[in-house]
């Protein structure tokens, strides 16, 4: 049962001199409850725009967004605020996404403001629990973002996203600003939270290897259109569309012998086409 559905979604940005940029050209996607959908594409493919339309940051020009059966494409201001409890976000930049002038505790309490009948003590308990869950020390709540590293901040940003027990979290390149050693921890954390809380995740990334690791199903986006959709493993190991093939051929694998063989083949192919 798909619980988020995008139907024929179009986004057109108006530019100067009456020109228009067609960013999304009829996107059809669906995410089931408790499922992670990977969304792969390069810069300018429109992958971030998809996330923004779901979050209500960008308005769709045409098409529909169905959330739990409800059409939220043109949700009112008021309804959007309520939806904040169900749909959350983790951004790429862990430095910009936390207000440096507010303590972690204050930031984490925000999604709970919308929850009725929650006492101060309840909020503190929830904050303690969620910090524990994302593996941060207890005294984190009293500190400021400036005292944490990028990986720790991303854990905090994830904690903010899930503290209100949302149903869907849009993760926009959540690990591409992180070091490899930290990236593994954050990916594991997302996977674990998803299982424990039954979250649905939309995992946006440019890195097929990362997406293959977190999501069962993947869609490949190219210039505002979905060119391939299917099981992440299939797409990674046996891509059908020429663009997906080019994407996978271009991303280097961390094995010098295999990578050199690929490089040689690429050179031969290039020489043959010239």
């Amino acid at each position: 049962m798909s619980f988020l559905q995008l139907r024929d979604l179009h986004v057109v940005y108006k530019q100067f001199h009456g020109r228009e940029a067609h960013v999304l050209k009829g996107i059809n996607l669906s995410i089931a409850q408790g499922e992670t959908l990977g969304l792969v594409g390069e810069s300018g493919s429109g992958k971030t725009t998809i996330g923004k339309t779901i979050l209500g940051q960008t308005l769709a020009t045409r098409g529909q967004i169905l959330f739990d059966g409800e059409d939220i494409t043109h949700a009112s201001h008021h309804r959007r605020r309520e939806l904040g409890r169900d749909i959350q976000v983790v951004f790429q930049d862990p430095y910009g996404s936390l207000n440096p002038a507010r303590t972690i505790g204050q930031t984490l309490a925000e999604p709970l403001l919308a929850v009725p009948n929650l006492s101060r003590a309840d909020v503190q308990t929830r904050i303690r629990d969620i910090l524990h869950k994302v593996g941060m020390p207890e005294d984190t709540a009293a500190r400021y973002p400036g005292q944490f590293s990028g990986g720790q901040r991303q854990r905090i940003a994830i904690a903010r996203a899930v503290i209100g027990e949302p149903k869907l979290v849009v993760c926009d390149e959540p690990v591409s600003a992180l070091d490899l050693s930290v990236q593994a921890q954050v990916l594991n954390l997302l996977n674990q939270l998803q299982r424990e809380m039954g979250l649905s995740l939309l995992f946006i990334s440019h890195d097929l290897a990362v997406v293959r690791h977190v999501s069962r199903r993947t869609a490949v986006l190219y210039r505002g259109e979905i060119v391939e959709e299917g099981l992440a493993v299939d797409i990674h190991d046996n891509p059908q569309h020429p663009y997906t093939q080019a994407l996978i051929a271009a991303s280097p694998i961390p094995d010098p012998v295999a990578q050199r063989a690929r490089r040689e083949q690429m050179r031969r192919e290039r020489a043959a086409t010239n």
Partner: peptide, 17 residues
């Protein structure tokens, strides 16, 4: 334009808040 403002808006905070 900061990201955390965006995040707060998505969390359902009112503009005044």
């Amino acid at each position: 334009g900061e990201l955390y403002i965006e995040a707060a808006r998505i969390s359902g905070l009112t503009d005044t808040s």
